[in-house]
Write a protein that binds this DNA or RNA. Structure first.
Lengths: 342, 342
DNA sequence: ATGAAAGCGCTAACAA
DNA sequence: TTGTTAGCGCTTTCAT
């Protein structure tokens, strides 16, 4: 701060207040300042006070990058989410972030677009920051990226799915079982002619394959499938029902790969005066809060998104702090919430 | 990698591959590896090839924290968003993150809960990482936090609002004007008896005050206001309409502080067989995609959320790279989208 | 075009 | 309990 030390201040100095400045003012060594801030219990009351004073006077904010570099602990967790369906994972990310913050960790967000080209860059960016943990939405198939992740040695938690070969930790549920359960549920309610409206992603794929498979097993007519690709919109859901009804009016139950698509189907049904659930049953997936008090309230396969985030935070933090995670693979399950639409 | 150099490997060495390792294998100096990676045009073809080879062979991933510390450029942008209304800002954050990624920047996410206690910690965490820029959802009122931000010298962009006294850059729109515009719009459509359903936040406050003010100016009866606090749910929107109708049935237009609340009002209206828009007009705020193809389609005050994120990225990156931003304050405006509900 | 030296700001390791 | 020393892995600066 004072211009009386022309030798010390090198040209590289960024100008910000550093431990050294604080130490000088408090009349202690830099390491004492570090201790006072990070392990106050190891410093005497007197020095603690002097350091706090100096910090307040200078407005010192520790440079966490420097600290991380030195301690090999970044207090950073990276989350990779597919951007196009951000909304489904909102609750997970929110609970993840809250739990992390409370433990003094920061969240770094990366959006994979499921593009291999981007994935390499994203991974470099993620690993390059040396996060203490990585949160993955979905599971990572064998690939170069997977190898790099493995090689990095950073704790990883894969989520929203199950696999016998996780990279590291795993918090998810079985998409296959969901497909079976929904088919069984429809059958138990007396529905017979199924259709499905689904987006293009691997997990929806597994739900829907199981759904179709179970229908076939039970001797039901073939399931009509509308794949909406990446258009996960309400509008596209409406169109999808229109398409289904163009082919045949003999459909009485539709399983959608997301609540939003299901809302679209419901909307189109209303536009056509189809009675819900007598004329048509509709099942969504995800369990976003909005659907439970609409008219008609949408039945859905409910996922405990918040729990996934909270558990992931717990696991990642445990591992970051060198503790062992007892149950590194967890099936959080799902539940079918029956409401007006079925 | 080879255990033949017991002196060099100090106990602090984290074990990861470093520039030094790569340099040794490529037969060049560490700085050349750095140049080959960050400024390939300054390195001869031959050395470039050798470095790339060595990088591939070792699986080297540069430690960005070390680089940042050395260069005082973190390539990190921090975004602070209020967690409870994540969804409204989703589109903004998504476009922000995409634009940042394309320019080689990472996004760090902080969730303020509007709690003063948390704000201090959040700010320390944010500034401590020395991001190249900070994205704020909303504007920051005079406070200790604001002073710290100012003192940090980090480029800041405040968003989703307008103020004559921004910290630095500003990308938003006038909530006051929106309130006036909605009142005028209702009046022009012949509505006379207004109500409003709103959450507790300062921006909603300004929209609603202006709405009430204009109604009074025009000699209309007092506006009935339901404040739902922090319960920004569809269900609460339904309850709100019920409350309004308990007091008086003579309400013909409701302005809601979010699309979600408006959806709730619409739902309750349907439950009561109130005709939309003849019996009741409903206006939302935000313009989330879902509402435009529902039945009835919700009229709303549309905000270009994506543009806010993209512009913010552009400004922040420009400033991070030492360029000057010509128009550091931008009003992105709003537009009333008339649909079935009005 | 390439390299040597010297830090960036912090903390681990060791010493007192 | 406090301090000294030596890095963490990278890039700036200055030479060649």
């Amino acid at each position: 701060m004072q211009p009386n030390d022309p030798i010390k201040r090198s040209r590289r100095n960024s100008g910000a207040v550093t431990v050294r400045d604080v130490a000088k003012i408090a009349g202690v060594a830099p390491i004492t300042v570090s201790r006072a801030i990070n392990h106050p219990e190891t410093v005497s009351a007197e020095l603690l006070r002097r350091v706090h004073d100096a910090v307040a006077r200078t407005g010192y904010v520790p440079n966490l990058m420097a600290g991380s570099l030195s301690s090999s602990k970044s207090k950073l967790i990276a989350a990779v989410i597919p951007s196009t369906v951000f909304s489904v994972f909102t609750e997970t990310i929110e609970s993840l972030n809250n739990a992390l913050f409370d433990a003094g960790y920061q969240l770094m967000l990366g959006q994979s677009q499921y593009l291999a080209s981007r994935e390499e860059a994203l991974l470099g960016a993620v690993i390059g920051r040396r996060p203490d943990g990585i949160f993955l939405t979905g599971i990572m198939p064998p690939s170069n990226a997977r190898k790099r992740l493995l090689a990095s040695g950073i704790p990883v938690v894969e989520t929203w799915d199950l696999t016998p070969t996780p990279i590291d930790m795993l918090i998810g549920f079985s998409h296959h079982k969901i497909g079976l359960a929904v088919a069984d549920y429809f059958i138990s309610k007396g529905y017979q002619r199924f259709a499905s409206v689904r987006a293009s992603d691997e997990r929806a794929d597994r739900r829907m394959s199981a759904f179709v498979e179970r229908a076939a097993q039970q001797g039901l007519p073939p399931v009509q499938v509308i794949n909406v690709g990446s258009e996960r919109t309400l509008t596209r859901g409406r169109q999808a029902l229109a398409e289904i009804l163009e082919n045949t009016t003999r459909v009485d139950a539709v399983f959608c790969s997301s609540d939003l698509l299901a809302l679209g189907v419901l909307t189109e049904a209303r536009a056509r005066n189809i009675r819900i659930p007598d004329g048509l049953a509709v099942m969504g997936f995800g369990g976003v809060p909005i659907i439970e008090n609409m008219i008609p309230a949408l039945s859905t396969v409910q996922i405990n998104s918040g729990k996934i985030g909270a558990l992931a935070a717990e696991y990642l933090i445990a591992r970051a702090e060198g503790r062992v995670v007892q149950m590194p693979t967890v099936d959080v399950g799902f539940s079918i919430h029956e409401r007006d639409s079925t």
